[in-house]
Simulated scan of single mutants.
Amino acid sequence: MELNWVEYIGLAAGTLTTAAYLPQVWKTWRTKAVGDISLVMYTSMTLGVLLWLIYGVLIKAPAVILANAVGLALVGGMLRLKIVYDRRPPQARPAAPAEPNQRP
C-alpha cells in the first residue's frame, strides 16, 4: 500500500479526532463519575463509529479503518464505563470533582 498526501491527511484527521476521546475516557476511568455523561450520546456514537469502521473496510480505506477501529475501542470503552458505573449503588458513586474556577 502506497501512502500519498491524501492518505496522510486522512491519517492526521483520524489521529486528532480519535485522540480527542482520550481525556474523557481517562478522567472517567480515574474518577468513576459518569453522572454528566449521556448514555444516548455514547450509544449513538458507538454505533456510528462501528458503521464508519464497516464502511472503511468495505471501501478498503486504511485511514478510515485505523481511526475508527481505535475510536470504536475508546467510545465503546466509554459506553461500557458509563453502563458499569451507573449501575453502582448511589453511596458507592464518587461525587464529581468541583471545577477549580467555579464560583459558589
Rank of each mutant, 00 (worst) to 15 (best):
L3E: 04
W5L: 04
V6E: 12
V6G: 05
Y8T: 14
L11W: 12
L11N: 03
A12L: 02
G14K: 05
L16S: 11
L16Q: 02
T17R: 05
A19W: 05
L22E: 08
L22M: 11
P23S: 10
Q24P: 02
V25R: 01
V25P: 00
V25C: 01
V25L: 00
V25S: 04
W26K: 07
T28A: 00
T28R: 02
T28L: 08
W29N: 07
T31V: 00
T31F: 02
K32N: 02
G35T: 15
D36L: 11
S38L: 15
S38D: 10
L39K: 06
M41S: 12
M41Q: 11
Y42M: 15
Y42S: 15
T43L: 14
S44A: 14
S44T: 14
M45W: 07
M45E: 06
T46V: 07
T46N: 06
L51T: 14
W52L: 09
W52V: 13
L53P: 10
I54Q: 12
I54F: 06
I54E: 14
G56M: 02
V57I: 11
L58N: 07
L58D: 00
I59A: 06
I59F: 09
I59T: 05
K60H: 15
A63T: 15
A63S: 06
V64E: 00
L66F: 11
L66H: 07
A67H: 03
A67C: 13
N68V: 09
N68L: 06
A69R: 12
A69Y: 07
V70K: 15
V70W: 13
G71I: 05
A73E: 10
L74A: 12
L74G: 07
L74T: 12
L74S: 07
V75F: 06
G77L: 02
M78R: 00
M78A: 04
R80Q: 10
R80T: 06
L81I: 14
K82N: 09
I83V: 14
I83H: 01
V84N: 09
V84I: 09
Y85H: 06
D86A: 05
R88H: 14
R88D: 13
P90R: 10
Q91D: 11
Q91C: 08
Q91K: 11
R93K: 11
P94L: 10
A95H: 05
A96W: 12
P97R: 01
A98T: 03
N101S: 08
Q102V: 15
Q102F: 09
